[in-house]
Design a protein around this nucleic acid. Structure first.
Lengths: 91, 91
DNA sequence: AAACTATATGCCATTATTGGAATATAATAT
DNA sequence: ATATTATATTCCAATAATGGCATATAGTTT
């Protein structure tokens, strides 16, 4: 199996979960620390943490440490058009 | 499928598999019948069939019957830009 | 140092996905 | 009607994902 298809599949897999999509959505607003994401979404902190790590491993977000906090942000600006197309699909 | 994030997640889930991505790739070339897809990819016919149904259920492809054959084709032309963005992500 | 806070990791039961093998269906040809 | 062909469905074992709970780590404060 072609490597490239697997890499792409990994990205889509990272996006194939409602919680992780909600995180992405929240991050379009700018970088957020884990505690803000936990507060916004209604999930346990460990689950949010694991979700963020999965998104990071797929290369979709990046993190920045500042004291006790870890701030996550979107890594690609084209993500907006990406999701615009997606929105057309679900109409 | 109650909320929007779940609907989007379903689309990404359908795309989160190398075989299904290869099918999508093959279909950008134009509509293909199941047998052509089976011949092109190296998988059992039942597996290809199930993959196609999953893509169809996600609303990404559509089918057309003609005699014994079933032809599948992409449902969205914006899929090209969608994948262009994806390609930027994996560089 | 100990206490506290933000985040990450490990464990676990439940549920979903994967892909092969056998079989069923549906359209066509003889 | 029977045979043939293209596609779909069912069953199954192996593997992976989900999300809660308990705990660990790492930076900060006192």
């Amino acid at each position: 199996m072609n490597n490239l298809y697997e890499k792409k599949a990994q990205i889509f897999k990272a996006l194939s979960n409602p919680v992780r999509l909600e995180i992405i959505d929240f991050l379009t607003d700018g970088e957020k620390c884990v505690c803000e994401i936990v507060e916004k979404l209604n999930y346990e902190q460990p689950h949010i943490s694991k979700s963020l790590i999965k998104l990071k491993e797929a290369g979709l977000i990046e993190d920045r440490k500042d004291g006790l906090n870890v701030y996550y942000s979107l890594k690609f600006c084209c993500m907006k058009e990406f999701f615009n197309c997606l929105n057309k699909m679900i109409k």
